[in-house]
Write a protein that binds this DNA or RNA. Structure first.
Lengths: 238, 238
DNA sequence: CAATGAATACTTGTATGCAATCATGCAAGT
DNA sequence: ACTTGCATGATTGCATACAAGTATTCATTG
């Protein structure tokens, strides 16, 4: 038991087929191209993806642990998907715990982290001025993910990562022409400052408000959708 | 070669070898019999458990999704385990979201559920009078699990189930001779009443307090442990 | 004796084969 | 027409086979 120097896990997930299949299926489920109720048939998938059943099986097992499919005895893995109720639940849950992540991030702030976080918000502002919607959304995700990577709680980070995965479809589709972008960036900046100052109370308070605002936005969007409007209008920046 | 058993698909998850291996490994990791840093070698495990590599692999993939092991390219799956920092984090996180589960449970209360919940607390009290420690703990788990099965949020339930899994070792070992049992049952009863009355605010408030108390208890226990005392004394009932 | 390089063993990743189980459809009988 | 029983096919669960990469060991050489 000597030899340490393992592969840096940061970012680089395993490059195995199992993982690629998993990510592909997850993506499909979360962005809606694989519909809830659908059955994932190992043989069919392995044919379509050009791999054998083994990686497909493993991917399906992983999806099951994530709660994205349910294994039904002789029917295959039936897709559960994420409906609008789930979406709202996720936002509510985030209201409850993402503030905690900000609090902990504030408690664990370092100079390098201050710099990194600030850069993200600056970039987001820059992209906003340029109206680069795609990048705005990208920075939005980065901001939140960076914060909870600073919280130094494996458990909380894991939970938040899963939650963010679940809502990525909504986030991506709601990027364009957000009336809230400007406000959201301002909120990000406030949170940023609180975290940089190591003010956990304030960071938490502001984050809760921020996510509540995002949730209100989602509610409006869902109401519009119910009235028949399309999906991709109104605000992102949650 | 090995006994084929009539295994079959029956039950989908519970009966499959993969599932059993998964549960066995999970149990081992969470109760500390498989130590953090240890490598799970597929061939070794498949030999020890008398199954082939396939179910072992699948179990390991599941553990990875749960964050209990980390797959290292050519070293196998290295166990991450749950240290006391994780334990505390879990309690803190529960403080933030388990109240939400109680709130939602209160909002979705029905007559049948009132009855079921009440029975659990009654039983716990009964076992307390009889000093059946094992059953007290069992009812403790049942109480909380039942509540978040009523919250009707797949996501929240999933998250809480995982959290409870993570701390099951502590809960089990801290059953005996809890000075807090009586107090905890009283708190359960208060929460029960709030939920039964559909009073979400109160249910949430009481639950937060309850879990905070349990957390304080854990802190005391960990402090004692640091001073060299054994693990299994003092309070359960979280 | 130390260094180096080749052989070996270990470990995972992927594919395939086989058995068990369940769903489905069809035919026969009442 | 409705039910029952059987044959067939679909699908999973598990085991094994094979390939590839890596760590380790050991022998050879300077």
């Amino acid at each position: 038991m000597k030899k340490q120097e393992n592969v840096g896990v940061g970012g680089g997930e395993a490059n195995s087929l199992s993982w690629r299949v998993f990510e592909q299926l997850e993506e499909g489920i979360l962005n809606g191209s694989i519909l809830p109720g659908e059955s994932l048939i190992e043989l069919k998938l392995s044919g379509e993806l050009g791999v054998s059943r083994t990686p497909v099986r493993e991917a399906i097992r992983m999806l099951e642990q994530k709660g994205l499919v349910r294994l039904v005895p002789n029917k295959g893995a039936v897709v559960l998907g994420v409906d609008s109720k789930d979406l709202l639940d996720v936002y509510t849950i985030r209201t409850y715990i993402e503030g905690l992540a900000s609090r902990w991030a504030a408690e664990n702030i370092t100079e390098a982290r201050r710099k990194e976080l600030r850069e993200i918000v600056d970039l987001q502002e820059f992209y906003h001025l340029k109206s680069y919607q795609e990048q705005i959304s990208e920075m939005d995700s980065r901001f939140h993910e960076t914060i909870f990577s600073y919280c130094e709680s494996r458990t909380l980070q894991h939970m938040l990562r899963d939650l963010h995965h679940m809502i990525q479809r909504y986030r991506r589709q709601s990027i364009a022409a957000s009336g809230r972008t400007e406000k959201a960036i301002a909120e990000h900046r406030l949170i940023l400052e609180a975290i940089c100052q190591g003010n956990g109370d304030e960071a938490e308070r502001l984050t809760v408000i921020h996510i509540n605002n995002a949730k209100e936005n989602l509610l409006k969007l869902l109401a519009k959708e119910d009235k028949g409007a399309a999906y991709g209008e109104s605000g992102a920046s949650n």
